[in-house]
Design a protein around this nucleic acid. Structure first.
Lengths: 194, 194
DNA sequence: TTACGATGTCATCACTGTTGACAAAGGACC
DNA sequence: GGTCCTTTGTCAACAGTGATGACATCGTAA
């Protein structure tokens, strides 16, 4: 048995490899979702052995959480005046997806929803919603039932997000954005008004 | 090599076996979701060989669709008077889950959401929403933007359903149902009113 | 030089959904 | 009765998955 030397890829610092895996995973998970993407596919795209993926991130699920958990970036909108807030939030949701950062956040959220049968993913999703939507709003409302109302706002926003990016409702995707903003925004406002 | 005769289970008509598999699948899928349940587990619970599952239903995905696609049974509520409809719908969603039929429909919808990265599941989900919510409502509204508004109603209902049964939002789960019905129902009503 | 930790590779594991070959029971027809 | 054929059930195997652990190799500190 001749001992062929194993042809190793060029060595590099761990952080660099980790980043390559991270980028590949984010790209693939965003496009195709958790289940459709295998560890070996991520490894191939990152130019890396599959075992290295597990070594750096522990498991496929942890890699998913680390790459797909993003803040909704709705915090800025939350700071606006309370009485136009409904429409402002909906407009933010409806218009941002065409920009780069917004699209990523939104597809990430959709992927989170779909992978939410994993309990750790479910926890992350709950946390994202709480921090990104509910909590900033509770501080602004200040009424007794503020917490419930804030979480209902989160629910309603989640409904629009999943309809657009998980269910892919053709009627809503084709609808005029101004109409969407006005109608859904006013309904949202009804939840915010005391 | 002695030819041991294969110990077969008692024979029965195909429809009976099919039903056993169907029941087992519904039970397990409802409790644990699409991914967590394997074909072999369904087969074991039905007292059947795993290959028979595939033989009767074609694939795990088709079995899932056949067992989990249910109508929302919201049709009856949809026929009520238009001006109390928002609260009536929310009350229906919030109270029915404790009954048997309601719980099944709701957990089914949650499982559909989570498995919606499969394109056939996504189609079924879209169809369920259209038939169960959007279409009955469009007929009642009759305005020019009726279709968009009906689909927004569906989105908002979906938001509450996913918050409760997919995300498992603790605040909403613990909240008083009357408060939920009043607040979210009124917001929904804003979408229904012209 | 030696020793060691960091980095990369590979074989292998248990498990999954799915397939096709085979066995055996039950009814149809002569 | 005897001979087919369809129906029903069983089993072994396949390619794919996520994960693990043993091993090779590089770079560097002592």
């Amino acid at each position: 048995m001749t001992e062929r030397p194993r042809a190793s890829r060029p060595r590099r610092p761990a952080a660099q490899t980790r980043q390559a895996i991270h980028d590949a995973a984010h790209e693939l998970f965003s496009r195709e979702g958790f289940d459709a993407v295998g560890i070996r596919a991520i490894a191939a795209r990152a130019g890396v052995d599959a075992a290295l993926v597990v070594r750096h991130f522990g498991s496929k699920e942890r890699l998913f959480l680390e790459t797909m958990t993003v803040d909704l970036a709705a915090a800025r909108v939350m700071e606006g005046p309370l009485d136009g807030l409904g429409r402002a939030l909906v407009e933010h949701i409806v218009t941002l997806p065409s920009s780069r950062a917004g699209e990523m956040a939104v597809t990430s959220l959709a992927a989170l929803f779909q992978a939410s049968d994993r309990s750790e993913v479910e926890t992350a999703l709950r946390e994202t919603i709480r921090q990104g939507i509910a909590e900033p709003l509770v501080r602004r409302l200040g009424t007794e039932d503020a917490e419930v109302r804030a979480h209902l706002v989160a629910a309603q926003i989640g409904g629009l997000l999943t309809s657009l990016h998980v269910v892919h409702d053709p009627v809503l995707l084709a609808a005029d954005r101004g109409l969407l903003t006005a109608r859904y925004g006013d309904a949202l406002q009804a939840l915010i008004n005391t």
